[in-house]
Structures are given as structure tokens and as C-alpha cells.
Write a protein that binds this DNA or RNA. Structure first.
Lengths: 256, 256
DNA sequence: CTTGACCTTGACGCTGGGTCAACCCCGCAA
DNA sequence: TTGCGGGGTTGACCCAGCGTCAAGGTCAAG
């Protein structure tokens, strides 16, 4: 008769593992001696070695039982099933590695390369890093919500930057980041935005980019949270009959 | 302001995951509204998306925090470390697959091919499956305890089978598996064993195979548990001055 | 007022045991 | 007889990353 540690030693496992196998019913509980110690027979050694061998070969403990009691055909069926799972797990990890590599290559989190390029262009334009972060966060949300639209929108953004008015607008934004609330450049900026919007409406470009209402609202909120002083601009635009920021629209006039 | 499920939806994670991130301190707990609901701002969406992106790329949650707060150089260092772990895990799984394949190829559990071959040879000799199981279990224990000795011992076993006495012995074992306790073939078998042992002693072959005493005792116990009727043979051998089974030796005569 | 959808905290489950903690038991030596 | 060291026993918490109840409070709508 063997004690638990003798058994464990013979089979090359830890005492704790043996007790674990008892708890999950993989190894039957043996009888106890007069002082309550488990008393094992040599058959338990064989069983335990088999368990350990299967477990070490990647068989989940839950399956070890069926496999041990299985006939040869079922056995190889079971083994094949487990091998399939192992292959799937390996593929999953390889996928993960790829994503990780792309993430490291993309410099910054959760953004496709096209966006990173666009942000770089804004930096070249001389935009302040605080504004870049605002843009970046907006793009993170867009990329998470509607990844298929990202590249389209980026193309439109690049096109817009071809127009001198857009560049001028960005420059004004940059200059007024720290401006006082009554800085005249703010009025100038609102004038510019309004004229651009009127032109856009006349050209039939609604500027929606195909983004969902909820997402647009979320991005406006995010912008105001990060840069509360932008509220001035929103307010001024509203006084002139425009609403929104990410997507600027005419406030509809009620004519019931 | 957003509720937890709105936040979760925007970021593409589950509500449960968000709460989990709170619990482990990955996402700061926001303020509550008048009824105790968590009220999130849009910044939380960005943070959550970043977390989800990293986590989805295989970064352990415990590391996400450092990575999010890290500068670009530390960031790529951290990513590389994680990639290394991923590669290690993949290699581990591939190892596991190999072991599993070998296990399936070996037909039976925890046994090298040489042993399987030897057991097949016993089957060809006409041995009963009950005896084969006895042998197999003994080999399982040997393979677990002293794997480096297995092939040597197998070679010796094959050599022994070249001798007609060994074959005769096996045949007798097989015939007496169900024999009555007073079957004359049992005496015949003991005679044969004794003569073989005497010859072996004279030839200087102690028959130990280099196995450890403990292991030998364990295997004897295993045999007697699985086939209690073999006790007759042990007893008869003891009366003639021999002890053991796996390794049969002279009982030393006390000459104090 | 009720319903159904959403929120809250708390706790268990999964995998395979590792690692205490607190206490019993055995043989050996003083 | 007592103490010591090295066994054994059960119980419970710990790791990751949430899923999945459970039991109840809240909210908007019918």
C-alpha cells in the first residue's frame, strides 16, 4: 500500500495534482488507513501515469476520462478531435501575433495606416498636438464603429485640404486654441465656416460622410469634453442657424 | 453622458467586460447619476476602444495599462516582449501536438514503440490478453520511472524469448491462468522457473535489469493485486529459497 | 399600475493546479 | 513522556478573462 506522496512520486506528478484528480473524479478515491491517510494500490500508479501522459499531451482533463475508457477506434477519434482543437488554438495565436505586429507598425492604437498618414499631414500643416489628439480620438471612434468607411472619409479629408479655405480654417483653429473668448479671430473663423458650409450646400455636398447620427453626436460630445472652449464656436454657429460640428447642418425652421 | 451599455456598444465590448476592467482598475470608475448608474463621457469610449484593441491583440490585461501609458519606445519594447511570449506559447502547443501524435501512433498509452512491439510478440506467442495487460502495466511503470532503461530491458526480453525454456514458461503461465490451485502444471512451472534461475545464477546473470528496488517491489505488488492467484507460485518459490517475481533472487541464509 | 428593458452588486464557474494555513499522525531520540 | 521533523489531512484563496445567473432597484412607455 502506498501513501499519496509515494504514489505521486512513482507517477511523476505532485501530491496536489493527485488530490485535484480525485476532486474532479478522474482518479477514484482509495480507501483510508486507520489514521485517515489515503492508501493506494499499485493499480493507481498505472492509472495515474496514464492520466499524466494524456494530460501532458494536451488532452484536457475533462476528456481524459472518456479517452482512458475508450476502445482503440474511439480513442484515435478523440485524439484527432483534440489535435484539431490544438491546431485551431495555434492558428488563433498566430492571428493574434499578426494583429499585434500590425498594431506595433501602426505607431498608434487602433488606427489604420491611412489615418496615421492623415494625422501626420495635419502635423506638417503645423497643427498643435492638442488638436491632433482630438482628431485622433475621433478617428479611433470612427474606426471602431464603421471601419469600412474610414478610408473613404480619409480621402475626402485629403481632398478638402487641397482647398485653401480649409487650410485657412485649420490655421485659425490652431491660432485660437488659447485665444481669449472675445478674440476677433473667432468671429473670423465662424464667418469662414459659414461661408464654406453655404458653398457646400449649394454644391449639394451635405458633408455627412455617411456616418451614423449616434456616432456624430458622440464625436461632438467627445470634442466638447476635451475642448470645452469650442462651445463658443458652436454657440455662434447656432445663432446663425447652424448646428453640429462633426456634421454641420442648417437648423430646420419650424413651419407647422 | 452614456450608460454602461451604450459605452460597451460603442466600443464593441460586453457590459461585463467593462465592469471587469473597472474592477481591475484598467478603466477608471466614472461618476454615478442620481440613481446610481455609471455615467460615462466620450473619453471613456476612446480609452475602452484602446483597451479592447490591445486585449484583442493578445496583450494580457495586466500589461495593457503600462502599454497605454507608455511612450512609443517603451511601447514597442512591450509589444515585442508580448510577441515573444506568444511565440513561446505557439511552440509549446506545437510540441504538445507532436507528443499527441506520438501517443496516437503508439496505439497504447504511455508506452514507447519498442514495448508495443514486444507486447505484440507476446500476443503472437498466444498469450492471453489478461496477461498482456499485466505486462503492459508493468511496462507503463518502468517507462515512467526509468525511461532510459526501457529499450535495454526490451532487448534482453527479446533475447530471452529466443530460448525455448522461456517460451515454454510463458506457455505454462498462459495455461495455468485459470487452473485450479492444485493443478500439477503449477509445480511444473515452478520447477522450470527454478531451473532457469539456477542456470542464470551460474551464468552470472543476476537478472536485475538495473531496476531500482522500490520499483521492483511496486511491480510485484501490482502483479499480485491484478492476479492474486499468482501468490501460489510466489509461495512455492519461497519454500524453495527464492523470493520476488519481477526480480527473482536467492533468499539469503542467516549466518549471524 | 404594470411591463420589459436596463441598471446595480455579488458570487460561482471554467483550467490546472500552486500555495498557504491549521491541524493530525508517526517514528525516533532525549 | 515529551519534543521534533517530516509525513499526512481538509479547506480556502490565487492566477485570466470574463460568462452567467441571482435578486433587486430604476426608467420610460402603454
Amino acid at each position: 500500500m502506498l501513501t499519496i506522496s509515494q504514489l505521486a512520486t512513482y507517477a511523476g506528478v505532485t501530491v496536489r495534482a493527485v488530490r485535484h484528480y480525485h476532486k474532479i473524479g478522474l482518479l477514484p478515491e482509495p480507501g483510508r488507513d486507520h489514521s485517515g491517510y489515503r492508501a493506494y494500490d499499485a493499480g493507481a500508479v498505472v492509472r495515474l501515469i496514464q492520466i499524466h501522459t494524456l494530460a501532458g499531451a494536451g488532452v484536457p482533463l475533462a476528456r481524459v476520462q472518456e479517452l482512458l475508457d475508450a476502445a482503440p477506434e474511439e480513442f484515435s477519434d478523440g485524439v484527432e478531435k483534440i489535435d484539431k482543437e490544438l491546431r485551431a488554438e495555434i492558428r488563433r495565436l498566430q492571428d493574434t501575433r499578426k494583429r499585434l505586429a500590425r498594431l506595433a507598425a501602426g505607431e498608434h492604437l487602433a488606427l489604420p495606416a491611412s489615418v496615421v498618414d492623415y494625422l501626420d499631414r495635419l502635423r506638417e500643416l503645423g497643427m498643435d498636438e492638442r488638436y491632433i489628439v482630438l482628431e485622433r480620438d475621433a478617428w479611433i471612434m470612427i474606426a471602431a464603429q464603421v471601419p469600412h468607411l474610414v478610408d473613404d472619409v480619409i480621402v475626402q479629408k485629403h481632398q478638402a485640404l487641397e482647398h485653401p479655405d480649409t487650410v485657412k480654417l485649420y490655421r485659425l483653429v490652431n491660432e485660437t486654441l488659447d485665444a481669449a473668448a472675445d478674440d476677433p479671430r473667432i468671429i473670423e473663423m465662424v464667418d469662414l465656416i459659414e461661408s464654406m458650409m453655404i458653398a457646400a450646400v449649394q454644391a449639394g455636398a451635405a458633408g455627412s460622410y455617411g456616418l451614423d447620427d449616434d456616432l456624430v453626436r458622440l464625436m461632438d460630445t467627445a470634442m466638447l469634453e476635451a475642448a470645452p472652449e469650442a462651445q463658443r464656436i458652436i454657440t455662434l454657429l447656432e445663432q446663425r442657424g447652424w448646428k453640429g460640428w462633426t456634421r454641420i447642418e442648417r437648423i430646420p425652421t419650424d413651419r407647422l
